[in-house]
Structures are given as C-alpha cells and as structure tokens.
Design a protein around this nucleic acid. Structure first.
Length: 275
DNA sequence: AACAAGACCTGCATGC
DNA sequence: TGCATGCAGGTCTTGT
C-alpha cells in the first residue's frame, strides 16, 4: 500500500476537492471492504459538510459538521480518484462520494485490504487501530532517544521492528529499507542494538526519506495514484528498493544491492554499507 | 510481552 | 493458448 508519504499525498489531493463541500450522496457499491461497512454508512455521511481531512500514520480521518469521523485506510491497493459528473465508475470503485459543486470522489480498491469506518470524532483515541500506534515519525517528538527506547528489549531484526506500527507509525516495506540504507544500518541487526548514535541516525533517516518522498508526491509502483490522476515519482529516487543486483549508489562502493525475504516481505540493502 | 506464521483479496508477470 | 506459481506500499488474528 501506500505508506505514510503516499497517504499524505492522497490527503493533500483530496483536501481541495472535499473540504467545505457537502456530501450530496455517499454510495457503497458493496457492503464490505476488508471489514463490513458500519450500519447506515451512507446515510450517516450524506448531508454532512467536510470540515477537514487529517492523517495519522497510514490512516485518513475525515472530519464533518457532525459527530462522526470517517476513518479510512488504503490497504495495499486502495486509491481515491477525483472527477466531475459524469464520472464513469470503474471496476473496484467500491465507495462513491458525490459532493456539492458537482464533483465526485471514487474509492477504488482491487484487493480490498482497505477499509472505512465511522467513529465518534471526539473519541478517536479510543479507536482500536489508532490506539495501538506508536509515535508519528514526522513529529518533533520523534527523536533518536524515543526510537531507541521503543527498540529496547526487542530481539527481532530492526527492519521488522520498523514495520511494527507500534514502534513508529507510518513506515512500510519500501521506506523501512530506504531508511536503513540511509542510516547505514543492516536490516538484519537486532533491534535492541540500535541505540545512541545509531538510533539518532535511524530516526533522522526515517524523517528524511519520508519528507523527500512526500515532496515527490509519493511513490507510484503498481497501485498508488494521486487523487488527481497524476503519479508520484519518488520511485525514481529509491536507493535500494527494487534495485536488486544494481550497484550501490554510494561513491566508491558499487556493490550489488541484495534482496532477501524477512518476515515474508522483501528487504533490500547494501551488505557493504550497512552494518 | 514479543515474535512468527497464517489469513484476508485481486491482478500481473513468469514459466512450463 | 492455458494453467500454476509467486509476488505485490498492510495489518489483524492465532499460536507458540
């Protein structure tokens, strides 16, 4: 899926099309995504005006002039597309939002690992999937010391720990590999050994790679497209992800990037530059 | 509590 | 051409 930078890109793309607009209709074309949609999903949103769209980790939170917030997750293959009526429905367009002013927003998700839910806006901290999340990596409060404390006592490889949303929220499979490369840390290193200066480097690398990716509109591999239909282009800036066999970009290295499975996911790294 | 593996889905590239 | 296999930006549940 979209990781944090892609979700942030989606948020920014949706904002101008939805904020301040009234939802004239919300149509669920099937009763479930990953989970069943909540009872009265369409009715509870219809007639509400979107007051804002927030992001927490990889979750989007839509606020309205009413008690419910809409929590949305893109899973692996979810995307939003904007259009003006008539806006043809495509295969896997599961939820359609019709907004005041004649616009439409379609949520498309072939694999249906994404979901939408409604929750009392004033009590979002109690929403289970949000309650479990660790620190937001782009917050100033996310420092090397905070990361080190969260990795303490963990015997799992640091790559796996970065994917744990309770350690740091929003990093996924691509940016975990990219951040470890930038920090010069082996993905195989036991998480609890990432302390002190190493943790400082990793926290800084996580922030930097996420910010660089956001600045590029995220990465478009298979499924991520921005709401306006444009593609992100950070995939052209990957140092390791998807570059198995290609040379390490570090001046004077040039060793082939290696790929190997970790916890069922592909990890990419330079075994010479990352220790 | 931490960790590994399995589960949920569809689409696409690959190889026979 | 058809079919089987493996893989894909995620996260929950289960079992050790």
């Amino acid at each position: 899926m979209p990781e944090l930078p892609e979700v942030e890109t989606v948020r920014r793309g949706l904002l101008p099309a939805m904020q301040g607009r009234r939802l004239e209709a919300v149509i669920a074309r099937r009763p479930d995504l990953r989970f069943p949609l909540p009872d009265g999903f369409g009715q509870r949103l219809t007639g509400r005006t979107v007051t804002g769209i927030r992001r927490r980790a990889k979750f989007l939170i839509f606020d309205f002039d009413g008690p419910d917030a809409l929590i949305a997750h893109l899973g692996m293959s979810g995307s939003f597309r904007l259009g003006a009526k008539p806006f043809p429905e495509e295969r896997h367009d599961h939820v359609i939002f019709k907004t005041s002013g004649g616009g439409e927003v379609h949520f498309n998700d072939p694999r249906r690992f994404g979901f939408m839910d409604l929750w009392e806006a004033s009590d979002l901290v109690a929403y289970p999937m949000l309650a479990r999340l660790g620190p937001e990596p782009l917050d100033d409060a996310f420092t090397g010391a905070v990361l080190a404390a969260r990795l303490k006592g963990r015997r799992t490889p640091v790559k796996a720990a970065l994917l744990d949303q309770g350690v740091v929220a929003g990093v996924g499979n691509i940016y975990a590999s990219e951040a470890l490369y930038r920090a010069g840390i082996s993905p195989k290193r036991s998480a609890h050994t990432v302390q002190g200066a190493r943790a400082d480097r990793l926290a800084a690398a996580v922030k930097a790679v996420l910010l660089d990716a956001i600045a590029s509109g995220g990465s478009s591999l298979r499924d991520h497209i921005r709401p306006d239909g444009e593609l992100g282009y950070f995939q052209h800036s990957f140092d390791v992800y998807g570059r198995a066999g290609e040379p390490c970009r570090h001046a004077g290295c040039g060793a082939p990037i290696r790929q190997f499975p970790q916890g069922g996911r592909s990890t990419f790294h330079c075994s010479r530059c990352q220790r």
